[in-house]
Simulated scan of single mutants.
Amino acid sequence: MSAVALTLPAVAAPDGAALFARCAACHTRSGAGVAGAYPPLGADFRALAAKPAGRRYLTLAVLRGLSGPLMVEGKTYRGVMPAQVLDDASAAAVLNHVGTKIAQSGPAFKPFTEKEVVGYRASGATLSSAEVAKLHSGAGGK
């Protein structure tokens, strides 16, 4: 009897650019944001992504949402960001899309991993969107 190898179909990685289409409704396709409502996804994103607390904040912003005033690049934003219903791989994919294609200024970008998102999701499972927003300044947001 010979052994038969079983091949499972390859699972395509989530498409961060396609997922970003939801984000673009508020942050715009270029990530420029909307004055007073939705912040730009640029230097602030890159600065946050360069620090562990910032990476946690960015992940939780996507997974748990944001509410309450937020100061980004010296301007106040008062829009509400709903939590996005994404699995861990998809959350990493959209964050990586922003970090590589949208946010072009700031520190070098290190991609988010699915494992990293799993940990941040667990650590912020009980946080409200207002509590996540409060993490911004403590995480190094500008």
Rank of each mutant, 00 (worst) to 15 (best):
V34T: 15
R56P: 02
P52R: 05
T7P: 10
G124D: 00
G36L: 11
S137L: 15
T100F: 12
A139W: 07
A24D: 13
P14V: 03
S67R: 15
A61W: 00
R22D: 13
A25Y: 07
A25S: 09
D15L: 07
T100N: 12
E73D: 13
R78L: 11
Y57D: 01
L48N: 05
A53L: 10
C23S: 07
R64Y: 01
G65F: 06
L60G: 00
P39W: 00
G138M: 07
A25G: 13
A83N: 02
K51D: 07
F20V: 07
R56W: 04
V118G: 04
L41K: 00
M81N: 03
N96T: 08
V62L: 08
K134Y: 07
G16M: 00
A61Y: 00
L19P: 03
A3N: 14
F45Y: 14
A24C: 12
T76G: 10
V117D: 03
A53G: 07
S105C: 12
R78A: 13
T76D: 13
E114M: 12
G138Q: 08
G42M: 09
G124W: 00
A13N: 14
A18R: 12
K51T: 08
G124K: 01
P39R: 01
N96C: 08
P107V: 09
G106I: 03
V85S: 15
A5R: 15
V34P: 02
M1C: 14
E116N: 11
M71E: 14
R56C: 01
M1R: 15
L48Y: 02
A25F: 09
G140M: 03
V118E: 06
A139L: 13
Y120N: 04
H136G: 02
T100S: 15
K134D: 06
L63F: 00
P69I: 10
A25K: 08
A24S: 15
D44C: 04
P111G: 11
